[in-house]
Design a protein around this nucleic acid. Structure first.
Lengths: 175, 175
DNA sequence: ATCAAATCCTACCAGCGGAGTCGGAAACCG
DNA sequence: CGGTTTCCGACTCCGCTGGTAGGATTTGAT
């Protein structure tokens, strides 16, 4: 699995917050937990990460709760996932502990270098592009509709849905 | 990390095999382990997975070893990664244990459904596309060169390298 | 003032999978 | 036969993930 349950929960949580729009009163965690049927105590950790990243704001005390820090359209899923998952890298050597820069630490000497780097770079690029071009508002809008428009509206890139190369590709048959 | 070390090792191993071209004698694991400085005993597991997927063939006994089952140009990294990592899904509910079909099992009732599905579908699509459009031959060719041409030759898609949207994107600053 | 409803914070735990080791059996070649 | 190599299964170690628990703090309502 690429992403952890924590991230799944967090995204769900954000979507749920997005659906509540920006009414004056915030939404309590208990409400959110009930709506998504997730363990409240664990959600505390999740929402803490979101708050640290300044994606949600909290009001404490009675009738307190959480609300989005910005409008859903201004929040890219890139930010959300990053807040929950930490640096996203396809491979260990791609993550710089320091400032989340991305590179490969295996740089071989003598001209030839880390052969896998090309691949991981491409994969990373694919993931990042998908996350950056999707906003929370997209998900909120999607949440209400019936199951269509997933593959439709090729999502800003205008790419054809992957050419059928070779025999049946082992991954992602249902895309 | 999206991929495990096992996958990293496996890809390295395949690249190394690809570099040896198809001379008549196969390459022993010991040789490969030495070339990549990886633990031999662990590589046994890795190469076993590759063999199961019919990506390499083995000859036992003295002067035995492994060779690619097909030419490097005919092997997509999609296949390699799938053999090593199993089904690649961004999220638990996306992986169907049965036949690697991809879907989401959280289908909510009453019109509204699993809000995160849109996101995971896009991510998955990005990863799969990257893996499918990269062949082992690409990596082999890359392995000998100096560190360029990574971002260059936008890898068949012709996409611009991700627009700078909003403030500095938290992921992948060095792409 | 008091109480209840929230967020907040830290520590803790159990299970699982990943990375790696080991020992031995079978196959193949000279 | 003997060395080399693949093959196979069992085993260990360890960190991370998901989840729980308990208490402190803030706030609004009565």
């Amino acid at each position: 699995m690429i992403f952890s349950a924590k991230t799944e929960y967090g995204v769900r949580l954000m979507v749920e917050l997005g659906r509540h729009g920006d009414g004056p009163q915030p939404v309590s965690l208990k409400t959110l937990a009930a709506a998504e049927q997730l363990p409240l105590s664990y959600l505390e950790h999740v929402v803490a990460a979101l708050k640290r990243a300044e994606l949600v704001t909290a009001s404490r005390g009675a009738h307190g709760g959480y609300r989005l820090a910005r409008s859903a359209a201004e929040i890219t899923m890139d930010e959300v996932v990053h807040a929950l998952e930490g640096t996203i890298a396809p491979m260990e050597c791609f993550a710089d502990g320091e400032h989340h820069r991305v590179f490969c630490s295996h740089e071989g000497q003598l001209g030839q270098h880390c052969a896998t780097r090309l691949l991981w770079t491409r994969v990373q690029s694919g993931v990042v592009r998908a996350l950056q071009t999707t906003t929370l508002a997209d998900l909120v809008a999607f949440a209400g509709h019936g199951p269509d428009a997933v593959a439709g509206s090729t999502h800003a890139t205008g790419l054809t849905p992957a050419p059928a190369l070779g025999q049946a590709p082992p991954l992602a048959r249902a895309l």
